[in-house]
Amino acid sequence: MSTPDTREAPVTGEAAAITAAALALGDDALVLSHRLGEWAGAAPVLEEEVALANIALDLLGQARILLSLVGDEDELAYLREERSFRNAQLVEQPNGDFAHTIARQLYFSTYQHLLYGQLAAGDGPFAGLAAKAVKEVAYHQDHAEHWTLRLGDGTPESHDRMQRACDALWRYTGELFQPVDGLDLDHTAMESAWLDSVTAVLGKATLTVPAGPRTGAWAAGAGRQGLHTESFGRMLAEMQHLHRSHPGATW
């Protein structure tokens, strides 16, 4: 009765912010890992099966740690509705051809590397996790950059495919730098570092930095607000179906 709301509110606010941040980062990792898992058995060469699976497994590991910080990992992954997922739209984009997958990897891992680099340097609740993840992500970025060079500066066909992929995914990259509750980061600095890095890689790969806008024209928002693209609902339907068919079961 006498407990003043004013004393509780900041604590709740902070906890809610940490939850929001953990969901944003965790959902990014969970969803991208799922997409990469779809490549199993269909990669362009056997060596790349192993590489893509390594990245998917790193991301799934990150997702499990992040989701477990704020709840039961399986409840969060399997029982939330589409609108409750906080991942950026970039990571839910379908695999497309290998060029699309690599462009998505390039954009995302460059961002994630900067993000975890900043988090690891801080003393927030994600510093410990970020210190480990930043090493994994550095490798993901390296993998994406090497493939971007080879596809961009490979054959005329691979160049065209890679350019198309970079163009198509460009509009999903702006969202990555919107402020996220609970993450005390310098988004402006991250965004300009991201642009520098991606511009340099694309240039080296003889690709053109896409000219279009980096955000969609829809004012309703994007993934971090729980608004997703059409293919995401199907992805979740597939991912959640079995778990939801057996309520309360242990696996």
Partner: peptide
């Protein structure tokens, strides 16, 4: 293993 060049060979070797 197979790789197009030395850099990729190193990376493939690391993964495999």
């Amino acid at each position: 293993l197979h790789a197009p060049d030395a850099e990729m060979a190193l990376r493939n070797a690391r993964d495999l």
